[in-house]
Write a protein that binds this DNA or RNA. Structure first.
Lengths: 148, 148
DNA sequence: ATAATCTAGTTTCAAATGATACTAGGTTCA
DNA sequence: TGAACCTAGTATCATTTGAAACTAGATTAT
């Protein structure tokens, strides 16, 4: 017999509450310090890791919709943080990469991101962090299976 | 010296990915089976627990904005799942409660919610679940502190 | 009491999001 | 080849969300 339903104990609810709070804090910091939205920040982070990517690849790497990627790319390009070079192999797509000032910005954002994460996880042991990550990934694949 | 930043390991990102996936699955189920949005479902769940509440109280219990609560209440009321009775003490507010058919609906939704949660957590031991909940709450209060 | 202030709930507006349709360019197969 | 189909990215539209303004009722201080 399943336990009674209490919203406060219901995992999807708890997840949502926690994530929304965390996202708000992070988004607020990025916006006020660097004028970046979350989608923009994600693209910058991925481009810093790989230096080159098409929007399709960026969408896959950040799990964002292609529309969201398109908009974030346009915003970053107009601020000259990202540049698009023609893709010889496929003229529909572009190769995106960070510009010099994009890399400079990343140099500032990344340490801040890490600091925020550390403050969030202050009081968690490395083992706990690892454990949390693993559980989130298990939930993710369970949800993925349930979505068929 | 902080580790390098890799988006896939960055906790706020992982949390967001997992939560969005989980939310989509849950929201899809509620919508297609019962025609309920997440905010509506939350109100129903809380009203089932307490039987009476003002919108303000519902907002506090579900951490939702008063606008969101207002809209969800209106939708539920128009479907006659919830009724509003005048509040003698304060004529600006109403006492909301589930109607008979609201309770009947809850009788169907709750087991489904529990089943979904169980499928999500299949493979988690009770101790792991408890642990996860506790970690989420710790994150929540850390985020809360960071929001000042 | 009554003016100033405050609060529960709604309405209005603007921003964010994603589904859909569209455009331009690729691929496949007869 | 060239017709049918497919895909990268953009534009359009409807939906969701929350901030700010608003309304009606409550509270406080003089």
């Amino acid at each position: 017999m399943p336990g009674p339903l209490v919203l406060d104990k219901f995992l999807p609810y708890r997840l949502s509450i926690t994530t929304n709070l965390v996202s708000d804090v992070i988004a607020g910091a990025y916006r006020s310090l660097f004028g970046l939205s979350i989608p923009e920040w994600r693209l910058v982070a991925v481009l810093a890791e790989r230096s080159q990517a098409t929007q399709l690849e960026l969408g896959a790497a950040t799990r964002m919709d292609k529309v969201t990627v398109s908009r974030a790319s346009a915003a970053l390009t107009s601020r000259a943080l990202v540049e698009r070079t023609a893709n010889k192999d496929d003229r529909r797509s572009h190769r995106l990469s960070l510009t010099k000032s994009g890399r400079a910005l990343y140099g500032q954002v990344a340490p801040k991101a890490i600091e925020l994460e550390e403050r969030l996880l202050a009081g968690f042991s490395p083992k706990e962090v690892e454990n949390l990550q693993a559980m989130l990934m298990r939930l993710e694949s369970a949800a993925h299976r349930m979505a068929e």
